[in-house]
Design a binder for these strands. Structure first.
Length: 487
DNA sequence: CATGTCACG
DNA sequence: ACGTACGTGACATGA
């Protein structure tokens, strides 16, 4: 699975059946073939040996044959080989340990939130029914469309891919300027998301034996090299809204321990500075400047001290845009400003940071020529549509080409950090520190109270040492107390 | 199962 | 002329 993922993350899914078909032209015996399907499906222990043996033996056989096919492809390139041997393979044990450890949640606190959210949702529903003049299901986009755009005849701002009038939040936000109902819907949507996905569900996922929640990390899913997390997804626990932050507070430490979260500061922008070698950007990080303020100072041609909060906000959007393969259109929509103004900011930026522009152009060219881009460590992301005739598809591939080296290098770096930190954890007294979670640029730990200060410092140092960049790489412990510290 | 929506980095 | 920020996973609805 990992050999296939490192060889080409996007060419196929990486489960055995898909790989056997793609690389060996072999159709595996499916589990349904021997167990049946639906309600009458047997479990493996109920299957006759005559049927079970060939099925099981095929797995072993195909695994070996896939390895014989894929390993030479990976080993043919020193950098791919290193991504596999030095990152993905040693990471397996780290992820396994994290999954087995799990994390404690305060189910009682979440139950209280659920109840409060439920009460507020009922209030909102009642008000919404009055405004609409009838009862309807606020959770149904279809029924909401009918109320907003047919019954109340509000203007259609945007359509869904299928052509129906969209009720997405940005549309409701726009309508909320002139009508009362959309505002209620926005609040209802937000709260019902929190209730259904988190406060109701997380307590149901507590393991009876361990009394903790155990996620699964997937190592061969994303195009860029990031991990993903499922059942439950612990990489999208709310934080942006006040209500959301309360959910994060329900993630607590065992008695005698503290939760400590350490995250990389501006890791993708630092990688952009390193990869582009832009003098101005390298200098901003070397000087330890607030990078968004420094960007604002250049884009708006004012001294650093005269940067306003609005300038900084816009510069921050520009910086995010750069990481995403920005278009003037996208930046304009994000900032809700005219397109020519967005274009002006971009022009200014590239005038002041010409190395970044050159890097972006080089990346597009190289991607078009090779059909893939690579991270600092040589992980590849293939872009089959980079030379598509269809302009929209080609542009989308170009944006992915810009983004992948930064997102992917960050993923490589934190994976290296996880391996180093895990090694260090094993050298500490048993159970004095445990890795609990990874959230893309953040590692969350459970640390014995008496070790918190010393261990936190060690962890941040190990994370910072995970890669040598031409700018400082900084990891810091979360001062915002986002993952609550109980007991 | 597709769709629309929205939670995160 | 077109359609646009990158990467994910989970939920409710409704066919």
């Amino acid at each position: 699975m990992l050999e296939s993922y490192v060889f080409n993350s996007v060419g196929t899914r990486h489960d055995m059946d898909s790989l056997a078909l793609k690389y060996l032209g072999h159709k595996n015996i499916s589990f349904e073939d021997i167990a049946g399907k639906g309600k009458k499906q047997l479990t493996f222990n109920q299957i006759e040996l005559e049927q079970a043996a060939p099925y099981a033996a095929e797995d072993a056989d195909i695994t070996l044959r896939l390895h014989q096919h894929l390993w030479p492809k990976v080993a043919a390139d020193d950098k791919l080989k290193s991504v596999f041997c030095d990152i993905e393979l040693p990471l397996v044990e780290v992820l396994s340990d994290i999954e087995r450890t799990g994390v404690v949640i305060d189910s009682q606190m979440l139950a209280q939130h659920s109840q409060r959210l439920g009460e507020r949702l009922q209030e909102l529903e009642k008000e919404a029914y009055e405004m609409a003049g009838e009862e309807f299901n606020l959770g149904s986009p279809k029924q909401l469309q009918a109320i907003l755009f047919e019954k109340l005849e509000l203007p259609v701002i945007k359509k869904t891919p299928k052509g129906a009038p969209s009720t997405a939040e940005e549309v409701l936000q726009e309508l909320a300027h002139d009508y009362p109902l959309p505002k209620l819907i926005i609040e209802h949507r937000g709260l019902s998301k929190l209730k259904s996905t988190y406060t109701d569900k997380l307590p149901l996922m507590v393991n009876e034996k361990t009394k903790r929640v155990h996620t699964s990390y997937h190592q061969a899913v994303t195009a860029t090299g990031r991990l993903s997390s499922t059942d439950p997804n612990l990489q999208n626990i709310p934080i942006r809204s006040e209500e959301g932050r309360r959910i994060r507070e329900a993630f607590i430490a065992s008695p005698g321990y503290k939760i400590v979260a350490a995250d990389y500061s501006q890791i993708e922008l630092r990688i952009m500075a390193h990869l582009s070698q832009d003098k101005g950007l390298l200098n901003a990080f070397a000087e330890g400047l607030d990078v968004h303020s420094a960007t604002a100072s250049e884009v708006f041609s004012v001294p650093l001290a005269d940067v306003t909060s609005d300038m900084r906000r816009k510069a921050k959007a520009v910086n995010f845009g750069l990481i995403y393969g920005m278009s003037a259109f996208g930046l304009a929509r994000q900032l809700d400003i005219p397109r020519h103004e967005a274009q002006h900011y971009m022009d200014k930026y590239f005038e002041r940071f010409p190395g970044v522009l050159e890097y972006m152009e080089r990346t597009r060219e190289s991607a078009a020529e090779k059909g893939y881009v690579e991270t600092l460590f040589g992980r590849r992301l293939h872009l089959p549509e980079i030379n598509a005739r269809n302009g929209a598809r080609r542009k989308a591939a170009e944006r992915a080409a810009i983004n992948a080296p930064m997102q992917g290098t960050a993923a490589d770096i934190i994976k290296k950090a996880m391996i180093a930190v895990h090694q260090w954890v094993k050298e500490q007294p048993k159970d004095s520190v445990k890795i609990l979670m990874q959230v893309h640029d953040e590692l969350v730990f459970e640390i014995k109270e008496q070790n918190v200060a010393a261990y936190t410092e060690q962890i941040c140092a190990l994370m910072a040492a995970a890669a040598e960049l031409d700018v400082p790489l900084i990891a810091e412990a979360d001062s915002g107390d986002n993952w609550q510290q109980a007991h």
